[in-house]
Design a binder for these strands. Structure first.
Lengths: 190, 190
DNA sequence: TGTACATCAGTGAACGCGCGTTCACTGATGTAC
DNA sequence: TGTACATCAGTGAACGCGCGTTCACTGATGTAC
């Protein structure tokens, strides 16, 4: 049953959004195309009308995840006072919501090890995401001595990513919550 | 061909060491039992003479990886002056060697997202590894105000884990090296 | 210490299953006149 | 604007493949006397 151009574009976007979420929730290797297509309310046979292969879907879904992440970060940054923007970013990133809800998960915290082994295209998208994240943080600490800005931004990002990874891994909820709080304070050098 | 008890124990340990390395190198889902057994110089059929299932191998291999990591960390700590021990730990952890060589990779940096989705046994082993790592760092900063010790230790560990994850992910070698350096300085609050 | 037999580590083939991918088919959409 | 036909989004079955797991078989090791 052929669909209109608008419907086709909508379906493609639906697959992309579903894939972006499912990959972050269950990992790339552990998420089958059937899982994605079924979650999107489609049968798996139609996948190749929209994407060339699973690999290209991974790249596009990863871009999508980063775009959503940065959209959320930028919204928070713009809504904050100039000198509270870094704190707003850190608070937004290290929330229990982002730990528990794969919809909000940062791809760096859920997919990084798999992406290290992925093809070059996917690695470049991931690399670009890291660069963009570092640049975003740099903008928020521009009042530091310029030699320190990049170093500090990298340190903050490392703390955010590591803190979230550990908070997800730890079994005890109380410990997990504490990791988010402690990573926050460390990132902000409180 | 039946083997002696000593040989059997050696084979089991060989499978365990190989698995520990391969899981960290290629991920759990992406490493087949055949891969492990072949790397160990065996055929895959014999696996079940030593382990009940892939899941139990994962748990044991994970324990093995943590034990090796803490052995290395403790050796470095004991070899350092009291007030330079944290720096020694951070330097040891954030080396390019540990980034490039799966033999040295910390399981928290390569397996964390997969372990979040693993069965309870594996998650408990991972949780215990995190706790042990935090305790190790706490011992090295015992001169801080006691209320701050745990918070600081969690912050340091977050920075170490996140820094290594990002250093592995980034494509440009120069950027990757810089991430290791910047994360080191941030962890040590320099 | 020597013999007879049960045990079991390792082999290699087989199992069912789910994966990524392909394909014949369908019927509504898009296009050409 | 209406008609005729080509296109193609989606379905559902099929493909080869590698996975985790099982099993019959082998022959050296361990055990009992």
């Amino acid at each position: 049953v052929r669909r209109s151009r608008v419907e086709t574009a909508e379906t493609r976007q639906l697959i992309l959004d579903t894939a972006s979420r499912e990959f972050r929730r269950n990992g790339i290797a552990e998420t089958g195309l059937s899982d994605i297509m079924n979650s999107a309310g489609l049968t798996h046979g139609g996948f190749y009308r929209h994407f060339e292969s699973k690999d290209t879907l991974v790249c596009e879904a990863l871009k999508e995840a980063f775009d959503q992440l940065f959209e959320g970060l930028n919204t928070r940054i713009e809504a904050s006072a100039r000198n509270a923007a870094l704190e707003a970013l850190v608070d937004y990133y290290l929330t229990p919501d982002r730990r528990d809800d794969c919809e909000l998960a940062c791809p760096l915290t859920t997919l990084a090890p798999e992406l290290c082994r992925a093809n070059r295209s996917a690695r470049l998208v991931a690399s670009a995401g890291v660069d963009r994240f570092i640049s975003t943080i740099q903008m928020l600490i521009a009042d530091l001595p310029s030699a320190e800005i990049q170093a500090r931004a990298v340190g903050v990002l490392s703390t955010l990513v590591g803190g979230m990874v550990l908070a997800r891994l730890v079994e005890a909820r109380s410990m997990s919550d504490r990791i988010l709080r402690d990573a926050r304070e460390f990132a902000l050098q409180i």
